[in-house]
Design a protein around this nucleic acid. Structure first.
Length: 1148
RNA sequence: GCCCGGGUGGUGAAAUGGUAGACACGAGGGACUUAAAAUCCCUUGGCCGCAAGGCUGUGCGGGUUCGAGUCCCGCCCCGGGCACCA
């Protein structure tokens, strides 16, 4: 009987389903092993041969572990929320749930064809309400948590409230605010906390929650109509689709992943993950150690002192808004006022500062001769709260308002009563007014906006040891102090520069990295150590989003500062010994400090420590760790995602009660944003929540959040759901969580290095902190399978030159079909020196002339033509690979013409054929180079596909798909099958005792395969199986004692054929449950070893000696050998090295 | 620029510091067959040689070692990640 793969595989797929062979129970009495594949997104294109690579590898490990007696959890499911289904829905009106359903069915069918041991009873889908109920629940846990830096873990928000009630909020708590999006809300006492109203309290708490909403800089993608996470943006365009992305400030849900930065970094050391992934995460987290340094600002002499005319406010040094003549007196008064605010002022202040709106709001600020209650300097808006006394002073107030207007301020007035009675309305009015006003200072995304103390420029540096080399300070163009620090005479220049820098796209900025640009503000800051005046510049090499958006420039020690200094002729101070500062900055970290000051002569690390000490002594700075990691944007203006279970009351977000979960996706008429630009969920009818019974009937009704969660929400915790997938009470029971714990082996692509793999670790740590799980890393071991690439095929397009006056006017260009040629012909046309060049060119000219059937004036060569670029990634024309012949390069023109896009095309043959260029490329539907596993399975069977994908090379390595070698693995399976089938193809094995050589082959194979699976070196295990089959074949071995263990060993790789043979061997149960055959070293013992005898390391002959022979005797025997003697030519060897069971080397 | 990988026959690739190229594809030759498929055998890194054999060979240049694809130093090239990150 021949090896009939189709029948066998069909039979066993059905049998496995019937017997529930792969069903896994939670059984704490057995040792567990959890193997997981990264969640696939079920795309419409289906699986290609690259997808199963990792699944096959993990399936082999899962089956192997099962043979070894482990209870193996090996589930599969779908990350079924996502953009493609929604885009498709927008185009076709088809509900994404429906598309997803179809795609999932297709995936399932393809996966089933490959014979995986997935326990499908545990399948999960992120878009299933019974799943996303728990995604929403975890979100609510995040919302209900804050990060306690003292305990270094997340805690319930109730505990923060208790703390506020007991001790208020001290400066130390500021370190909780690690995100980049919110402003520090200031300190408050326990008494103050208690006096806050509900709304204020909620606003304050927003600044601490791990899931919070705020005005944030986001990556807005207009084409996709949504915001993107940092890892979804590459080189300024969206990773999916390549649409431009811009920075935009908008209300946004974020997750405070930054609180976990240090732990995410530290945890990497405990993980058995590939170094490249760990390195990518380290880069992404971007920890840098250094110091914060504060430079006090040096006021410029005022114009008045210089005897010039009364300046307008806008011309002043900005923050100095007071009239110099009365400033001193007013300052005292203002200070007093701040200490004793009226009740209304205090109430409003708490609201305003909690609101984080319109940049920083100052209170009791002096402007000209007046103390105003509140002011936003960047928005030039004054807010006054008038007591009853103002009624008698209306005239005076009018004069005051007029003066403020003259200075460029608008005044918003409220009465005490208004503030007390209608606070929300007052706040909303202020907000609306602020929002409507243009920003004079560009609002800074800097996390360091502290809002207290005197005016300073705060910088972050990793090299405080170079402080004595500071010769200027550079601010990012977006820095909030820029407009304030700009001197009147430089205003136009600075504004122009800022405007230009702001409008330059991220892409441009990256492209023009070597162009130095900047502008002097005219202001100076005080050096904290020397007291020297340091000029303040603006330069776009400083990024607003990192550190404080300002750097202390040390041109002697930092190459970027050096270039800036060189370009603008600023002083360059040598900071280190042996530096050649005329040529470049010295960035060495093992140097000795040479700049004048107390650090001189110290080594860099020592100087860093000392500098920080001194800064702290002066109160001018302190040691600080900075991270590049930003908080994760969590809201998407999209339909097809998990709804965020939040409702709004007075504009404040509140969690939906657990009993309301899952909050199901509502039906909408269209999957597009509303006319007002609201997300699609805003289209839903009755998208609101009423806490009282009788929803909508007399009870209060509150709007529900309209953004949805991003694609990575569900995948951040799905591995836990597989442990207990149908639990209606919890995301998974404690018993299941305690049994399965972490993933033992996680297999997937390295493209998830900084996205999924970081969020998934973050959520795990969070759930651990809140006591839901007792481990804080999700996956112990991670293996990245390489990509299987496609091979694109392309042709060269021929372009007829237009606009040539000599050409006949009636050439039918517009109607002309496209003309293509092969790459062999194109190559000739590019080689004017080639012998065939002229022939080839004339051939093409003749072809085209003939084809268009036109005649030309005598002596002219027409038509004039050019050809496309041969680079497929650029301008080459890709063609479907199905249209290529067996030789892998000749185009099958008839087949190609069946494709609509080419039906009218013409192909210029050369030497009877059209040759396409093949280029290794990403395998994707759009590149027409997809190889479908179903086709391979149809021809060779799933077992062959599985073996072949493993045989291709190391799992981690990327390689182009090539069916060249597949015959080899197919032949191997046939030979394996034939070992069990004697003459006449009848099944038959003998029960004779195996011979020594047979046992040796068997045990050598068992040893190699067992070890290789542990190492995930599958290509070498397949090779070993081939060796075994070849050798047993030549020995004509048909012994059960040899073949039966081999069936078990092969079962993880080729389960269908193994089951069939197992059954034929007389077993009623499945081979998957058979215990793994142990190899026995006894059978591998050799009696003798054939020693390579080398002279000076070059092997010359082989001599066989018994294993037991000691090195001394071997040496004697080798030297006694006539051939060796002959080679020695009578000379005595200098040295003889005998390595037992390895080699003999004679040194002459 | 920085940080990870990697570079071995015509191809995919093996190789605890110890006989480089296992295994497989492809190619060439042969057997069986009317023929094809299937199967089996031989050859297959390069160069020289009828042969025995010799020389050479793991991106390049050095080094360590009795012995280096493997370890060290300096380059080149390819793939991936990060990037005016202070």
């Amino acid at each position: 009987m021949a090896y009939e793969h189709k029948e066998i595989e069909k039979k066993w797929r059905a049998e496995w389903a019937k017997r529930k062979t792969y069903r896994v129970e939670n059984n704490p009495s057995r040792p567990k092993y959890y193997v997981l594949d990264m969640f696939p997104y079920p795309s419409g294109a289906g699986l290609h041969v690259g997808h199963p690579l990792g699944y096959i590898a993990s399936d082999i490990v899962a089956r192997f572990k099962r043979h070894q007696g482990f209870n193996v959890l090996h589930p599969m499911g779908y990350d079924s929320f996502g953009l493609p289904a929604e885009q498709y829905a927008i185009q076709t009106g088809q509900h994404p749930a429906k598309t997803t359903e179809v795609n999932v069915a297709r995936y399932r069918e393809q996966l089933d064809n490959i014979g995986f041991s997935f326990d499908w009873s545990r399948e999960v889908r992120t878009s299933d309400p019974s799943f996303y109920k728990w995604t929403q629940w975890i979100f609510l846990q995040l919302f209900d948590s804050w990060y306690d830096p003292a305990l270094d873990k997340a805690r319930p928000i109730a505990e923060l409230i208790a703390r506020f009630e007991a001790q208020g909020c001290t400066g130390q708590d500021a370190s909780v605010l690690t995100g980049d999006v919110e402003e520090f809300i200031g300190e408050f006492s326990a008494a103050e906390w208690k006096s806050f109203d509900e709304r204020t309290k909620q606003l304050v708490l927003q600044h601490f929650r791990l899931a919070y909403i705020s005005d944030a800089w986001v990556n807005w993608c207009p084409a996709l109509g949504t915001v993107l996470a940092n890892d979804e943006v590459k080189d300024g365009v969206s990773e999916r689709g390549g649409h431009p992305v811009e920075r935009k400030r908008m209300k946004q849900w974020s997750l405070r992943i930054t609180a976990y930065a240090q732990r995410l970094l530290d945890g990497l050391d405990t993980l058995d993950w590939s170094e490249s992934i760990k390195e990518a995460q380290r880069n992404w987290i971007g920890r840098s150690e250094g110091a914060t340094v504060r430079f006090a600002l040096t006021p410029n002499p005022s114009p008045r002192e210089r005897g010039t005319a009364q300046p307008t406010w806008a011309e002043r040094p900005g923050y100095l808004t007071a009239d110099g003549t009365v400033a001193g007196k007013l300052q005292d008064l203002a200070r007093e006022n701040r200490k004793a605010p009226t009740e209304a002022e205090e109430k409003l202040w708490q609201q305003i500062r909690a609101h984080a709106t319109g940049g920083r709001i100052r209170r009791q600020h002096i402007i000209d001769r007046y103390i105003v209650d509140f002011v936003s300097l960047p928005k030039r808006l004054v807010i006054e709260v008038d007591g009853s006394i103002h009624e008698a002073r209306q005239e005076e107030d009018a004069a005051r308002t007029a003066r403020l207007k003259e200075l460029g301020f608008d005044v918003l007035r409220f009465t005490n009563d208004e503030v007390m009675a209608e606070l929300p309305r007052v706040v909303d009015t202020i907000k609306a007014t602020l929002d409507a006003r243009p920003n004079v200072a560009h609002s800074s995304p800097s996390p360091s906006e502290k809002g207290s103390g005197g005016e300073v420029i705060e910088v972050f540096t990793t090299r405080p040891d170079t402080l004595f080399g500071v010769s200027f300070i550079t601010l990012a163009p977006e820095h909030e102090l820029v407009p304030i620090l700009t001197n009147a005479d430089r205003k136009a220049e600075v504004e122009a520069y800022v405007e230009k820098a702001k409008n330059r796209s991220e892409r441009e900025r990256q492209a023009e990295v070597d162009k130095v640009s900047g502008v002097f503000t005219g202001s100076y800051a005080k050096h904290p150590f020397t007291g020297a005046d340091v000029p303040v510049w603006v330069g776009d090499y400083v990024l607003a989003g990192y550190g404080t958006g300002a750097v202390m420039a040390v041109p002697g020690g930092d190459q970027r500062d050096w270039r800036f200094a060189k370009h603008f002729g600023l002083p360059i101070i040598a900071v280190t010994e042996g530096a050649d500062i005329d040529k470049e900055a010295d960035e060495r970290k093992d140097a000795t400090i040479s700049s004048e000051g107390f650090l001189k002569g110290m080594k860099v690390p020592q100087a860093i420590t000392r500098a920080i000490q001194e800064l702290e002594k002066l109160g001018a700075g302190e040691g600080k760790v900075n991270f590049r990691l930003r908080d994760a944007a969590f809201g998407r203006q999209r339909y097809w995602g998990e709804p965020i279970p939040i409702y709004y009351k007075d504009g404040i977000p509140y969690p939906l009660p657990e009993s309301e979960l899952p909050l199901k996706l509502p039906e909408v008429d269209k999957f597009l944003p509303t006319a007002e630009g609201e997300p699609p969920l805003a289209r839903a009818k009755d998208w609101s929540y009423s806490p009282l019974p009788g929803r909508g009937a007399g009870g209060e009704v509150y709007p529900i959040e309209t953004t949805t969660m991003p694609g990575w929400a569900g995948s951040s915790w799905y591995f836990l759901r597989y442990m207990d997938p149908h639990n209606p009470e919890r995301f998974a029971s404690p018993e299941a969580l305690n049994y399965w714990k972490q993933i033992d082996l996680y297999v997937g692509g390295s493209e998830h290095a900084t996205g999924h793999l970081l969020y998934f670790r973050f959520w795990t740590k969070f759930l651990h902190d809140r006591g839901w799980i007792d481990f804080d890393e999700p996956a112990k071991k991670l293996v990245n399978q390489g990509m299987i690439q496609g091979k694109s095929a392309g042709l060269v397009r021929v372009f007829l030159h237009r606009g040539n006056k000599d050409l006949p006017k009636d050439l039918p260009y517009e109607k002309a079909p496209e003309v293509f040629m092969g790459f062999d012909l194109h190559y000739l046309l590019c080689q004017p020196d080639h012998a065939e060049y002229k022939t080839a060119r004339q051939y093409v000219v003749d072809y085209i002339t003939n084809f268009y059937n036109v005649t030309y004036p005598e002596g002219k060569v027409y038509p004039d033509f050019s050809v496309g670029r041969p680079d497929l990634f650029n301008k080459g024309i890709l063609i479907p690979i199905e249209c290529i012949g067996e030789d892998e390069e000749t185009v099958d023109i008839l087949k190609l013409k069946q494709n609509n896009l080419f039906s009218r095309a013409e192909f210029i043959e050369w030497k009877g054929r059209v040759v396409c260029l093949r280029q290794v490329d990403k395998m994707s539907k759009s590149r027409w180079n997809v190889v479908n596993p179903d086709d391979i399975i149809e021809k060779y069977g799933a077992d062959t596909l599985r073996l072949y994908e493993m045989f291709l090379g190391p799992l981690e390595q990327s390689k182009p798909w090539d069916t060249n070698g597949i015959e080899g693995t197919f032949r191997f399976l046939r030979k394996f099958w034939n070992l069990f089938h004697g003459a006449g193809d009848a099944f038959g094995v003998s029960d004779d005792a195996p011979t020594k050589p047979e046992l040796k082959i068997l045990h050598a194979t068992l040893k190699k395969v067992s070890e290789d699976i542990e190492k995930m070196s599958f290509n070498t295990s397949v090779a070993q199986f081939m060796i075994a089959v070849n050798e047993l074949g030549s020995l004509k071995c048909d012994k059960r004692a040899v073949l039966e263990p081999l069936v078990i060993a092969l079962a993880p790789f080729a389960p269908h054929i193994a089951e069939e043979l197992w059954q034929k061997l007389g077993h009623a149960d499945s081979v998957t449950g058979a215990p793994w055959p142990q190899w026995n070293a006894e059978y591998l013992v050799e009696d003798s070893f054939s020693y390579p005898i080398s002279f000076n390391g070059k092997t010359r002959l082989q001599l066989e000696f018994p294993i037991a022979l000691d090195p001394k005797s071997i040496e004697a025997a080798v030297l006694a050998n006539p051939e060796v003697q002959q080679r020695l030519e009578g000379k005595a060897p200098k040295k003889v090295i005998v390595v037992p069971k390895r080699i003999v080397n004679i040194v002459v």
